[in-house]
């Protein structure tokens, strides 16, 4: 099922908030998962697993390392769900 950029950003923000307690407003496209949001590798994998479930996509481990910013993840998920 296709998702819009806005839907995916809002959904990711919700997942990140659940996992880290970060306010959903702080989750902006330009933010880096590690440098800005301080998300460690285990939390990142938890977010990936939850995002796969929420958006019905698969994000192979090899692709996860290329998801540096929130926008990278949004683009990836939008494309994968198209």
């Amino acid at each position: 099922m296709a998702h819009t950029q806005e839907e995916v950003l809002a959904g990711l923000a919700e997942i990140i908030n659940e996992e880290t307690g970060l306010s959903a407003d702080a989750v902006e496209g330009s933010k880096s998962f590690t440098d800005d949001l301080d998300i460690d590798s285990i939390s990142m994998m938890t977010i990936v697993v939850n995002a796969e479930k929420k958006f019905g996509v698969t994000i192979p481990d090899d692709d996860v390392k290329d998801l540096v910013t929130v926008q990278d993840a949004v683009d990836y998920i939008v494309k994968a769900s198209a």
């Binding site: 285990i42 994998m45 938890t46 697993v49 796969e52 479930k53 698969t58």
Partner: peptide
Amino acid sequence: EGPRRVMPL
């Protein structure tokens, strides 16, 4: 749900 859904923590 399969192995992919087993949480990392």
